[in-house]
Design a protein around this nucleic acid. Structure first.
Lengths: 212, 212
DNA sequence: GCTACATTGTGCTCGCGCGCGCAATCACAG
DNA sequence: CTGTGATTGCGCGCGCGAGCACAATGTAGC
C-alpha cells in the first residue's frame, strides 16, 4: 500500500479535482471514468489506475460519486486546509498575481509581499503592504509559510529562492526564467510562457529553414 | 533521419536555448554537456542524446561552440523569425501579458488584442487597441497569426479556442483553467498556477490525513 | 431473490524515454 | 607527425508509466 506513487500521477490529480468541481457545479451526482476521460482527454484506464493508488472510490456498474471523490482527492492532495503564501517580486507580474482571483477559492492566500525596490516597499495593494526583502527572515519567523511564489527577474531569482528555502519554504512556484537549484526536500514548479511558446513553434513552423 | 522525435525532447530544447543565451551573455565560447547539465539539472547524456536527434554539433575533446549551438537550436525550433500573436481576454491577466517584456526579445509580438466586454473594447494599452471578439475572423483574415494566447474565464475559453482554430491559429497558449479540446493539428499548452500549487501541497502536507 | 448489465479495480504486456558505457573523434603538446 | 587526454555520438539495456483485457463487484429490473 505504501507504494511509490509517480509524480505524473500526482500532477494529474488536481486536473481531476478541477473537472469534478465543474461536474458538481453542474449538479451531477455520479460520473464514470469514461466520461471523465473524454472531458479531460485521457483514457478511462488512466484515471482508474491513478485513483487505485489511493483506494477504491468507485462503485461497479455506476461509477464515482462526484462529491465523494472530490472530497477524497482534496484530502489526498492536502487541500482541506488553507495554505498561506508569500510572494516575492512586486513588478507588473507580481501585481497581477496579487490581484488574481483564482487562488483564494482554492485555499491559497497570499499573506505577505516582498520586493527589493525602495520605491515599491511600503506601497499597498489589495490590503497587503509590500515589505523589504531584507525583512523576510524576521517576518517568516513570526508568521511562517511553507509555500512561496517567485516573480523576480532572472538575475536575482536564485538568491531569492535560496533565501526562501533557508527560511522554511518547502514549495515554490517560480515565474523567473531560470532553472533554479533547490535541496531535494523542496518542491519547485516553473511557469514560463516563453518556453511554452518556443516549443510549439517547432511543430507549426514551415519547412523554410532548409539547412538539413 | 526522419526519426520520430519525442515531445519531451522538443520541450527541453527551449531550456537549452535559454541557458546558452545566458552563457553567450557571459562571454563563454564553448561549453560541454557536463557543465550545461549541471546548470540545468539534467544529465549530460540526456543533453547529448537530445541534440543527436538533429545533428552533430559538438567537437570531441572540447564541447559545443555556444554561439553555433544556439543558432542551430533556434533554427530547429523556428525561432529565427518573428512570430505574431493574438491575445484574447483583456482582464487583469491579459493586461499583464500585454505588458510583459519577456516576449518581444524572443521574437513573440502581440499584434492584436480582443475582448468581449463592450467597456473594454476600444481602450488602448501599450499601443494596441482592444477589438471586439466579433471582429476576430475579419481581422485575422487581413493579418493572419498562427499563434494565440487565451486569457479569458474558463466558461468562455472553449468557445474562444474553437473560434481561433477556425480562423487558422495553429498553436495556443491557454491560461484558462480548462482542459480544452483542439484538433490534432493544433498545439496547445496550458498554464495554470493553481494546478501547480495543488500538486505541490501533496508533498509538503503533514501526515494529518492518513493516506500513504 | 435472482438475473442481466454496467463499470470498476488490477495483473500484465508493451513501448518508450533515460542513462550507461564505450568506440570514435578532435585538440593540443612535443 | 605521433601520442595523450578529453568529450562527443550513440547502441543497448533497463525501468517505468500507459493502456488492454478480464475478473470482481455493485446496480437495477422483474
Amino acid at each position: 500500500m505504501a507504494l511509490e506513487i509517480p509524480d505524473v500521477v500526482i500532477d494529474r490529480l488536481p486536473v481531476y479535482t478541477r473537472a469534478l468541481s465543474l461536474l458538481e457545479a453542474e449538479g451531477r451526482d455520479v460520473v464514470n471514468s469514461q466520461e471523465l476521460g473524454e472531458r479531460l482527454g485521457v483514457t478511462p484506464a488512466q484515471i482508474r489506475k491513478d485513483l487505485s493508488y489511493f483506494g477504491r472510490f468507485g462503485k461497479q456498474g455506476r461509477g464515482y460519486n462526484v462529491a465523494r471523490l472530490l472530497q477524497e482527492l482534496r484530502t489526498i492532495l492536502g487541500l482541506t486546509r488553507e495554505w498561506p503564501l508569500v510572494l516575492v517580486g512586486i513588478g507588473q507580474l507580481g501585481r497581477a498575481i496579487v490581484g488574481y482571483a483564482g487562488f483564494m477559492p482554492q485555499g491559497f492566500r497570499i499573506i505577505e509581499a516582498f520586493d527589493a525596490d525602495p520605491n515599491i516597499i511600503g506601497s499597498k495593494l489589495d490590503g497587503l503592504t509590500v515589505k523589504s526583502i531584507q525583512s523576510l527572515p524576521e517576518v517568516l519567523r513570526k508568521r511562517p509559510a511553507e509555500m512561496a511564489i517567485v516573480a523576480v527577474p532572472g538575475g536575482s531569482a536564485q538568491g531569492v529562492i535560496d533565501l526562501l528555502v533557508a527560511n522554511g519554504v518547502k514549495a515554490i512556484l517560480n515565474y523567473a526564467p531560470i532553472a533554479a537549484h533547490v535541496p531535494s526536500h523542496v518542491r519547485i514548479k516553473d511557469i514560463d510562457p516563453v518556453l511554452a511558446l518556443q516549443s510549439m513553434t517547432f511543430y507549426i513552423k514551415g519547412r523554410d529553414s532548409g539547412a538539413k
